[in-house]
Design a protein around this nucleic acid. Structure first.
Length: 975
DNA sequence: ACCGCCGGGTGCC
DNA sequence: ACCGCCGGGTGCC
């Protein structure tokens, strides 16, 4: 969906600049355009117009050639076709209109000649346009150099800019097609340019030594190998080339003698639940050797085992993870490391290097072809030995002990931790002291939201072997340490974004900013997507050799949001927003192929992202226990059958009549009502008695009565579980409203229809007259008083309840600890089920969609609790809770009534069939024989086939929706 | 010559 | 800057 919020302006611009004139561009499918690059996640630029530079809505007014003067007074140098930055210098003593010219590095090159500076100053000061420069011939200019300027701004400011320039005798050249929107005119189109074909991720040798159980899953090892390779990367960063002893940035053409710093880090963007925390802990441990931290800067190659250089070191650090088998060589400073040991190659876009020896092993971010990531000798072993799930012994680490819960660690973080460190870690503290003065930083700083702080502490506790001397300090709370040397002696400092930001904001001497860190890890790194937020600024100003961003959500940020992350990683020249904007953000927004290619290779280079459905070595990343679905047929009693049959006959007669009249869809709500009652009767006779017959005519009632009837109908449609979609947008209902003809649409959709078809708007489904003032909105949910009412009636059982209770009691006999979900679309039904549950002595809890957050959490927690006496049953309404709902304590599901949409059922099952589920999940669907429920299964089957087929993503047209609905009704009522 | 032309001094904003 | 511009020196051919 992210692509939808792409700004119109970009396309507007595309139209005016590319296609020209009044071409209709609305049919251009931007989704296709972007999805071919797999970049949908990056296309949302939902910025607020008028905020900061607002460059996304800028159009190119034109270009102008000018001169840069005064070169001999400044040191900044520029290559041919290099981008330069134009900055106002209002305080210049000689000319208040001064505009200085800087190169990409921020070194001043010169000034814009004063005659041109005068109008530029006016334009820039009044923010009429952004002026960007590219120097066509920068080299060998002693005194002046030309500069090609592009003027970008809002359409409404174009004339003012033109006028101001004209007043000073300048005229913009219209934007030329070949200029690729000012992004490197001649040089981009003039030469082929580097092709940034996806570089493989560097791999690190691993050994098979000490292969014992494997706590790291294959995809986690892959992530670790990737991270280690990135931390030890010696390749030039992406978009940099070595040319005549210079390092040249291929995007801006900036070049310098000094080698650009490597980006020793990246973005680990795996889905939630894939174990980013664990992998990060493993990464931290790669800096350990013999249970002690590796000296980072001063390590000499010969300190490492000799054979390690050839065959790969047995990674002590890795073994520190409990029961690890897959070893990575120690992760040391790249400067000191022998080059042969690192196999990383990013050579595909550099022919010269490509000829060099081939990497033995490469890691590819493309999960489909990632068999290559492990060395040959390791591969077979790992394949054989990998258990489906991890087993971890529950021993505490040496620093945080069993008794050091999160609360105590937070309440007084320094005291208990310090004490333990002293008591147990004398040796390691000593060794640190000895090396302290001569070594580089040893500390990894982890910043996370407060809510996951405890998770980090738990994970350290769980995964670090007790004999590893690791100092962990939680920098949090009012008593947090103020001693920089204390912090720098830690191996890990854990803190929150709030602490980071408030330290940075309040004290100028923020402790975290005074220290140089070995590594900074931003957990939930998308927290810094807003460049103006204090925590972002604070994070960007941290000094660290290695920088990592962990983020669970796909980087659903806009391109703009991505900037903060890149800036944090310190990939030159993107640390400066102007270069990010000019080389990536705007070209991508304008749909320029080169821009997309660059973004794609950038993302591919610095991020690793796998989803739960990603595959590694052909196997899913997460191997869940099996999920088995059984259908249990239920036969109605004679009495139940009588009622069912009579309601069915009545309903079938009415629906046949609608068919004969051709008014099925006009009576859609009534049809749904009939079907609903039948579905309810399959569950329990008491469910449907209260539902009023909606056969009464709408025409002859008072407005109030009419309104009430319509509201009831809408509620019927919404609550019928039919998963209604709006027939206009074909998406799920947003702000549902009902028409007088009793059809439910999204309010914005139907209003648009009425607007555009004025004055005689007709219902898209039945062509009845439509009026905005006739639309009835859905009133806010009132509390379920009906449930109480039902409770008053004398309770009777039903065939389905009997079947359920039979199954439950049977199950309890086999295993009293097994936990079940009982799922229904009818909360009233769940209430009815409560009674026999109580009678049979089951402890149960309940989760409805309407429950307050606090109650929900309580219900979930008590159910997930494994203690004896905790609830073994949860009553769950089908749609309760989002995808995040975790009910893995349950291994059995009883689905009391089928849903229209099989996806809704699957989603419900996934609440227990997900990461953390250790047992096979057995699902029982109760289906009444010879009833609407059996017909619903038929429809489910069809929908599943459709979803699996080639037209999975195809959206149906309105008439197709109509036909589908009609066919469904026929199937359901046996017509 | 209240010019032109020459050639030295000079040079961002 | 192999320019432009400035201002002093100079002045038929």
């Amino acid at each position: 969906m992210a692509w939808m919020c792409m700004r119109d302006s970009a396309w507007k611009y595309l139209q005016s600049a590319h296609l020209g004139g009044d071409r209709n561009y609305s049919h251009y499918t931007s989704r296709d355009f972007y999805s071919q690059f797999g970049l949908e996640d990056f296309l949302c630029t939902d910025d607020i117009p008028g905020t900061d530079e607002d460059t996304d809505s800028a159009v190119l007014f034109g270009t102008l050639r000018g001169n840069v003067v005064g070169l001999r007074y400044y040191t900044g140098v520029v290559n041919n076709n290099e981008m330069v930055s134009l900055q106002r210098e209002p305080n210049n003593l000689y000319d208040k209109n001064a505009v200085k010219v800087n190169n990409v590095n921020g070194n001043q090159v010169g000034h814009i000649k004063k005659e041109l500076a005068a109008p530029l100053a006016y334009i820039m000061d009044n923010k009429l346009a952004i002026v960007e420069g590219i120097v066509p011939y920068g080299a060998k200019n002693a005194f002046t150099m030309p500069v090609q300027m592009s003027f970008w701004g809002k359409e409404e400011n174009k004339q003012a800019v033109l006028d101001e320039l004209k007043m000073h005798g300048f005229k913009l050249a219209p934007p030329s097609k070949s200029s690729e929107f000012g992004f490197g005119s001649s040089w981009v189109s003039g030469r082929a340019g580097p092709s940034y074909s996806a570089p493989g991720h560097g791999a690190v040798q691993m050994t098979t030594e000490q292969a014992v159980g494997t706590p790291l899953l294959p995809h986690q090892k892959q992530a670790l190998a990737w991270m280690v390779s990135r931390e030890n990367s010696k390749e030039l960063p992406l978009f940099w080339e070595e040319k005549n002893n210079f390092y040249c940035n291929t995007l801006t053409n900036f070049a310098e003698k000094e080698r650009p710093e490597n980006v020793l880090g990246g973005i680990l963007a795996d889905d939630m639940g894939l174990g980013k925390t664990l992998v990060t802990i493993a990464l931290i441990l790669t800096n350990f050797h013999d249970g002690k931290p590796l000296p980072v800067e001063k390590v000499k190659s010969d300190q490492l085992h000799k054979e390690s250089v050839v065959t790969g070191v047995k990674n002590e650090g890795h073994e520190l993870l409990k029961g690890t088998s897959c070893n990575v060589e120690p992760n040391i400073s790249s400067v000191k490391k022998k080059s042969e040991t690192v196999q990383s190659q990013y050579s595909s876009f550099r022919p010269k290097r490509a000829k060099a020896e081939k990497p033995k092993y490469t890691v590819s971010s493309d999960s489909e072809e990632s068999e290559e990531w492990l060395p040959q000798q390791t591969r077979t072993k790992c394949e054989k030995d990998l258990p489906a799930t991890r087993k971890r012994s529950k021993t505490a680490s040496c620093i945080i002990q069993e008794d050091t819960g999160f609360a105590s660690a937070l309440a007084s973080p320094s005291a208990p931790l310090k004490k333990k460190a002293k008591k147990k870690d004398t040796a390691s503290v000593q060794s640190v002291k000895k090396n302290d003065s001569e070594e580089g930083p040893r500390t990894t700083l982890i910043i996370c939201p407060l809510s996951v702080l405890s998770n980090w502490i738990d994970q350290f506790e769980q995964h670090i072997r007790p004999d590893v001397h690791l100092n962990i300090y939680v920098y949090y709370g009012p008593d947090r340490s103020k001693d920089p040397s204390f912090l720098s002696k830690q191996d890990i400092v854990l803190t929150t974004y709030n602490i980071l930001a408030s330290d940075y904001g309040s004290r100028g001497d923020s402790l975290l900013h005074r220290l140089k860190w070995l590594r900074v890890v931003l957990d939930e790194g998308h927290t810094i997507r807003n460049p103006n937020a204090q925590q972002t600024k604070a994070a960007l100003n941290l000094e660290a050799q290695r920088r990592w961003i962990l983020t669970g959500t796909p980087i659903q940020n806009s391109l703009k949001d991505l900037w903060s992350l890149l800036s944090f990683l310190k990939l030159k020249p993107f640390t400066d927003r102007e270069w990010w904007r000019r080389t990536i953000q705007r070209p991508v927004m304008l749909g320029e192929q080169g821009g997309l290619r660059r973004l794609q290779s950038l993302i591919k280079n610095i991020t690793l992202r796998r989803t739960k459905t990603s595959k590694i070595k052909g196997k899913p990343v997460l191997e869940l226990p099996e999920r088995k679905v059984f259908i249990q047929h239920v036969t109605l009693t004679e009495e139940e059958r009588k009622i069912y049959q009579s309601v069915k006959n009545e309903g079938k007669a009415a629906i046949s009549r609608y068919f004969n009249e051709g008014t099925v869809l006009a009576h859609y709500a009534d049809v749904l009502g009939v079907l609903l009652r039948l579905r309810q009767l399959c569950c329990h006779p008491h469910l449907c008695t209260n539902t009023s017959s909606s056969s009464c005519q709408i025409g002859d009632s008072t407005p109030e009565e009419l309104r009430e009837k319509l509201v009831n109908k809408m509620k019927l449609v919404l609550s019928s579980g039919s998963d209604e979609e709006c027939a206009i947008c074909l998406d799920s209902l947003n702000l549902p409203v009902i028409t007088h003809c009793a059809h439910v649409f999204c309010k914005p959709c139907i209003c648009e229809v009425i607007q555009s078809e004025q004055p005689n708007a007709k219902c898209p489904l039945c062509r009845n007259e439509l009026r905005v003032e006739h639309l009835v909105e859905c009133p806010p949910e009132e509390s379920d008083s009906s449930i109480e009412k039902k409770g008053d009636r004398e309770w009777i059982s039903s065939s389905k309840i009997n079947a359920l209770m039979h199954a439950l009691i049977d199950l309890r006999k086999q295993n009293p600890a097994v936990k079940c979900l009982i799922v229904s679309q009818f909360t009233t039904f769940l209430s009815l089920i409560e009674i026999p549950l109580k009678e049979s002595g089951f402890v149960f809890t309940r989760l409805n969609g309407s429950m307050a957050q606090k109650k929900r959490v309580q219900a979930i927690q008590s159910f997930q609790d494994r203690q004896t006496g905790s609830p073994t049953i949860m009553l769950l309404s089908l749609k309760a809770g989002g995808v995040g709902l975790n009910l893995t304590a349950a291994s059995r599901v009883f689905l009391m009534d089928p849903a229209w949409n099989p996806a809704a059922e699957d989603q419900c099952f996934d609440r227990c069939h997900r990461l953390g589920q250790k047992q096979d999940v057995i699902i029982t669907k109760f289906i009444v024989k010879d009833s609407v429920e059996e017909n619903m299964l038929k429809i489910q089957k069809k929908k599943r086939e459709l979803a699996a087929g080639a037209f999975a993503a195809k959206k149906l047209t309105v008439s197709e929706v109509k036909q589908t609905k009609i066919n469904e009704i026929k199937t359901l009522i046996d017509l």
